[in-house]
Amino acid sequence: MSAKKLNSKFAHLITKDDNFKKLSINFFIFTKISIIMSNSILQYSSITKKIVMALVGLFLLMFLLVHLAVNSFLIFDPSRTLFNEGAHFMATNPIIQTMQYVLFGGFILHIILGITLQIQNWMARPVRYKMEGWSHTSPFSKFMIHTGIIIFIFLTIHFINFFLVAKFGEIPSFGDTEMEDMGLLVIQVFKMPGYVAFYVIALILLAFHLHHAFQSAFQSLGMNHSKYTPFIKGLSTVVSVVIALGFILIPLVIFFSSRYQA
């Protein structure tokens, strides 16, 4: 499917009246929640912000792992059966459906917190240095907002392309089953070279983000110990590389392998 087709599909689904309504209501609710959250976040002390950021971050990491697991079904089973079953389960299981909202909340909280922290941090140094220092620390830690923003842009596009389409669009059934053929949608998108390239870049940045984030969360939660911290730092590298590589491999395999046909 070409990008044009995909866009028209998106246009189609939001012009569909009741879908649009659903979308607007959801959007309205999330905006409202965001405003309430931001207001209370501003009241948080700096350490509370850190702690919430860490907890939410770890929660989002769990989501990434689940997401990666489901995605990997496509690699293990090119017939898409496994993946579609997984997707169907995720779309219908009431617990997962509830968690979806928690997840949205988590993302929003993480983003609002990130932005709030950054703005406060910029405000804390109104006059910048002429010669900025680069001390011997993890370089990724200094660019969390930058990697974060790019990942956010990626997420938005990703969200439109998959989630909204899945939720409100019309997806053909998978064979004779009542399941939607989500796998086909994924394969269609991952056959577009531009998208794959963007996907790969975004995930490399995600790796940078996680590389600092994972071990940083432990520090924020007060877990720093001369014995265990080096291990956590190593684990942080492993986690970031495994997650990013895992996600990156899937579009690459789909793009290059003839076993997947859009």
Binding site: T137, S141, H225
Partner: peptide, 30 residues
């Protein structure tokens, strides 16, 4: 500003004070 665990303070502290102290403070705070 807020701490984002970059560790620059530890790297530049002339007295070698460690960010393990910040973790301890977080713990105390929690």
């Amino acid at each position: 500003g807020n701490c984002t665990n970059t560790g620059a303070c530890e790297a530049e502290c002339p007295k070698g004070i460690k960010i393990a102290n910040i973790a301890r403070m977080n713990r105390e705070f929690i």
